[in-house]
């Protein structure tokens, strides 16, 4: 097995090892309905910047709309669906959409944006059990 340099995230975690916490985020509002999604995304980035671990971001209730890849706002830098996808691809953050809440609102594999996965509500509870903190956006 060859030695491989640690990726960015490993380095940052090592740097902050003493104080790093595990965070789970819950997003309850749609991206273009409410600021909650943008707030959660900014919080996610800031927490990773400080070396904390993001266990999972769970999208529930109207929050499932954050994973709809058919959303096409005119200004690309405000496309929160893309911005979440970017977070997943850059940082490997686990973005999970509640299957039943998604089904009720027309969100399924066919229109799921890259970086998101559809799973059960148990994924939220599991993240809550693992995490040191749960922060809800859109309450």
């Amino acid at each position: 097995m060859h030695w491989r340099p640690p990726d960015d995230r490993t380095v940052r975690h090592a740097q902050y090892k003493e104080t790093a916490l595990k965070f789970a985020l819950l997003v309850l509002k749609a991206p273009f309905q409410h600021q909650a999604s943008a707030s959660a995304l900014a919080f996610a980035r800031a927490s990773l910047d400080q070396g904390h671990q993001l266990v999972r971001v769970f999208f529930y209730e109207e929050g499932v709309q954050n994973a709809n890849r058919l959303a096409a706002p005119s200004a690309p830098d405000t496309n929160l669906v893309h911005l979440w996808s970017n977070l997943a691809s850059e940082q490997g953050v686990d973005l999970v959409v509640c299957a039943s809440a998604g089904l009720r609102r027309g969100l399924r594999e066919a229109n799921l944006a890259p970086g998101f996965r559809i799973s059960g509500l148990g994924q939220l509870i599991e993240a809550t059990i693992i995490a040191d903190r749960l922060v809800t956006f859109g309450g």
């Binding site: 809440a101 009720r104 148990g122 509870i125």
Partner: peptide, 19 residues
């Protein structure tokens, strides 16, 4: 909408995980 039921469903799920 479905939100009223969804709020109870998440609590039921947490209970199912023995929390």
């Amino acid at each position: 909408g479905p939100s009223t039921d969804e709020r109870i469903e998440v609590a039921m799920m947490a209970q199912a995980f023995d929390q």
